[in-house]
Design a protein around this nucleic acid. Sequence first.
DNA 1: CAGTGGTCTAGACCACGGT
DNA 2: CCGTGGTCTAGACCACTGC
Lengths: 247, 247
Amino acid sequence: MEAAPFVTKPDDRLPRYQQLRDDLVGRIASGEWALEEAIATEAELGQFYNVSTGTVRKAIDLLVADGVLTRSQGKGTFIRRPRFDSSLFRFFRFKSRDGQPVRPTARVLKREVVKPGEEIRSTLRMKASEKAIHLSRVRLIEGQAVLSEEIWLPRARFEPLVTLPLGDFEDLLYPLYERLCRQIVASATEILKVEQATSGDAALLNVAVGSPVIQVHRVASDFAGTPFEWRSTRGAATTFQYQVEIR
Amino acid sequence: MEAAPFVTKPDDRLPRYQQLRDDLVGRIASGEWALEEAIATEAELGQFYNVSTGTVRKAIDLLVADGVLTRSQGKGTFIRRPRFDSSLFRFFRFKSRDGQPVRPTARVLKREVVKPGEEIRSTLRMKASEKAIHLSRVRLIEGQAVLSEEIWLPRARFEPLVTLPLGDFEDLLYPLYERLCRQIVASATEILKVEQATSGDAALLNVAVGSPVIQVHRVASDFAGTPFEWRSTRGAATTFQYQVEIR
DNA sequence: CAGTGGTCTAGACCACGGT
DNA sequence: CCGTGGTCTAGACCACTGC
């Protein structure tokens, strides 16, 4: 008889370090360790799962490559948020008048609690009866609107945002999600397209109707892979630049 | 006294697997192993460098992650080209009339051997006196031009292309570079921007002047990291879509 | 100083590919 | 069948962190 320390039954066809990886993901998703606090040490995990530290290291290597964990020599291994700090800067190059890069401020223009459209409902895996929170935001640099955003959230997970005064929404929403709603963004998928400015874009972003506009459509998910934010951001294409490495 | 099998003097401050990685890059760049043929086995490399196979594996892991090598269980470890096959499909969604994705054909419109502009000269690290080969291409789907390309190459490396009949240029240039000029693309950097169609674009791509156009600017380099191709591709933004994962 | 992750070893055995 | 890379072990010692 041997102990079965796995939280979920592992797939025996997989190598042990893969099984271990999957089990660790489950334990992370379940909140066993606090965000950005050290998880169990490699030696402890090796004892717990009854594998050698080399195998533990390989499992953790995978999670580090996936961006779920970071290691810190002498300190431990930590759960890591995706680095959204430069999220906008991945695509848009915003500079203030003196040429310094700046992060736009934000203002929520509208909040409503309504039934979402079919695309959003199915993307967020919501029941037909469920309502969603819809936010319309603009992002500004030196008072000038540069981006417009539409955000959809399942109401059940984000109840505190229904009553939060609009003025209390901060520039960055993800820390707000975390603090008020205990929702943590673990990953996201973004799709870029080029559109032509509508009259709404034109009024909001101060561009000509028909001029090129970049639309970044993002779906953000938790550690379990469940999507819980649908977001669409539009900005003038003149501020857009993106770089890729091919190998 | 011990043998120093390193091709280039390694940096002793680095871990051994890093030194090994760097040395292997040098040997690959020097052409010691044929393209897509197996390199020395892990056991051989371990003996050669006098390290354990675990250390060799770690060095090779890095090169696999970098996209320089691929492993194949039971067969060996192989030098790998970057996967440009779907290069255009990374950014542009081309479909034929029946909805199937297709690769555009290509036609070279112009070839000239001239002094390049300063930007291209310095990007390709050419001497001031050196001349460059400049190609203008269009790429077509079912006879309709969908992309226009400007390509610049240092003449010294690409002499055979100066006299090649224009009709003998193939749809894919990189296999041609490899076969005729022994130049192998190991990596590339691409920058995306949105422009508005010029009258030239409009005539070539059959779009309206001022309509949005995506420009993909690519610099391709060899295994030693020396850039040897400058390329700019423009296409109608309506065919553009790009997806990113953030973690 | 103790405890963490980082490097490295010298093996063993397994799974796969080709002869 | 042999040779390849893939998995895994049970350690050793190093480098960094924080008390």
